[in-house]
Simulated scan of single mutants.
Amino acid sequence: MTQLATPLLQQTYELRQAIRSRAHTGPTSGLATGAMQGNIVILPAEWANEFLLYCQKNPIACPLIGVSEVGDFHLPDLGKDIDMRHDLPEYYVYRDGVKVESRADIADLWRDDLVVFVLGCSFSFENALSQAGLTPRNISEDVNVSMYESNIATVPAGRFFGNTVVTMRPYTPKEAIRAIQITTRFPKAHGAPLHFGTPQDIGIHDLDKPDFGDAVSVKDGEVPIFWACGVTPQVAVRNAKPPFCITHAPGKMLVTDMLDMDLAVL
Rank of each mutant, 00 (worst) to 15 (best):
T2K: 13
Q3K: 13
Q10L: 09
Q11K: 06
I19V: 11
R20W: 01
R20S: 07
R20F: 06
R22F: 07
A23E: 12
T25G: 12
P27T: 00
M36K: 01
P44R: 04
W47S: 15
E50Q: 15
L52M: 11
Y54S: 07
C55E: 02
K57F: 14
K57G: 10
A61K: 02
P63T: 04
P63E: 05
L64V: 15
I65K: 03
E69V: 08
E69C: 12
D72L: 05
F73A: 14
H74R: 14
H74M: 10
L75Y: 05
P76I: 06
P76M: 10
L78A: 12
K80S: 14
R85V: 03
H86F: 13
D87H: 14
Y94H: 13
R95E: 14
R103W: 00
R103Q: 00
D105F: 01
I106N: 00
A107K: 01
R111E: 10
D113Q: 00
V116F: 02
F117N: 01
L119T: 01
S122K: 02
S122E: 00
F123N: 13
F123D: 09
S124Y: 03
S124P: 03
E126I: 02
A128I: 02
A128C: 07
S130E: 04
A132M: 08
G133F: 00
P136S: 07
R137F: 09
S140G: 05
E141T: 04
D142Y: 11
D142I: 06
N144A: 15
V145K: 04
E149S: 13
N151E: 10
I152L: 15
G158K: 03
R159P: 06
G162Y: 00
G162P: 00
N163F: 03
R169T: 10
P170S: 04
Y171S: 02
T172P: 07
T172I: 02
K174Y: 00
A176S: 08
I177K: 11
K188E: 09
A192V: 08
H195T: 11
F196R: 09
T198S: 15
G203R: 00
L207M: 14
L207T: 07
D208H: 15
F212D: 12
D214S: 13
D214Y: 05
D220F: 08
V223S: 04
V223E: 04
I225D: 05
A228S: 12
G230Q: 00
T232I: 01
Q234G: 12
Q234H: 11
V235S: 07
N239G: 03
P243Y: 02
F244D: 13
T247H: 03
G251E: 04
L254T: 06
T256D: 07
D257E: 14
L259T: 09
M261F: 13
D262V: 08
V265G: 11
V265E: 12
V265M: 13
